[in-house]
Amino acid sequence: MPKVTIDNVSIEVPEGTTILQAARMIGGNLVPPAMCYYTKLDTSGGYCRTCIVKVTQGSERDPRPMPKPVVSCRTTVMDGMVVENITNEELVEARKGVVEFLLINHPLDCPVCDQAGECHLQDLSYENGLSKSRYEFKRREFEMHDIGDKIKLHMNRCILCYRCVKVADQVCDGRVHGVINRGDVAEISTYIQNSVDNDFSGNMIDVCPVGALTDKTFRFKSRVWFAKPMDAHRNCDKCCGKVAVWLSGDDILRVTGRKDKYGEVEDWICNDCRFDKKQKSDWVIEGPRNIDRHSVIAQNKYGVLKQLKIDVSKQKQIGEKAHNK
């Protein structure tokens, strides 16, 4: 079995393991963040570049000149590889750059975004980003397009991770949406007015790392941190029927797949379970679900933010001016 050393920790992994998977096997802080890679989706990863690491020493089988930044999610471990992640300052800086790129055109509308609280971009920017933006231009805006009655597409928030396209290709059949146009005006779209409608299309919501695809049946119902996640199951003839239901009192606000600590679902669930079974009597509730991931749901995670001093004098002035008018 090939042996790889990541941030001075060595591990032996099965042939074909990627650096990212190897890092996840080790666990802890040295696991690179991933916005587009998704274990269950074939050929996913490589686009967002947040998981870049530096391979400082290659191997006999990969004679390319090293050191070299590579994407950990798509680079297979080879015996003798030495990888640096958080121990390499240059790399940490490079990742900050990637986070900044992802944010310059993001609308930062977290206060009105259903994804807030479980958004990977939010987590990523808290952990790796800068507290202020150097981007001074108008942010990119797309027109809103309706893609059906269950899923809301909010293209401005999209980071083009391609996960939803891969879900449509690999989990659903008859893909009707994709990426159209190119460059920084590329967008997720059906091109003609068409609804994304398939028994498993709801999984696109679960895989979306940001608030670009959200559940219309949950829209503006609650902030996720006020809802109480419970493991639940039912006999379903389409899917495994194992889900997480999000409760407020006795009401089921929404149903999602069961996500692991990297935000990846354990199993795909069908649209019946997700959108139509909103009665507590539809489900056998197993018990509270532990949300084991980097997320603001985990309270006080960003204690360090309390030390941030935010200058609000400008806003105060504007407010006072408006008040005095």
Binding site: G174, R175, V176, H177, G178, V179, I180, N181, R182, T190, Y191, I192
Partner: peptide
């Protein structure tokens, strides 16, 4: 137009979205 692209999709036996994706690139 979309119908023209749909026709091309039909000839190639692919999903229309695959043609839209390519044409817009």
């Amino acid at each position: 137009s979309a119908p023209v692209m749909d026709k091309v999709a039909e000839i190639l036996k692919v999903q229309p979205i695959e043609v839209y994706e390519v044409a817009s690139f």
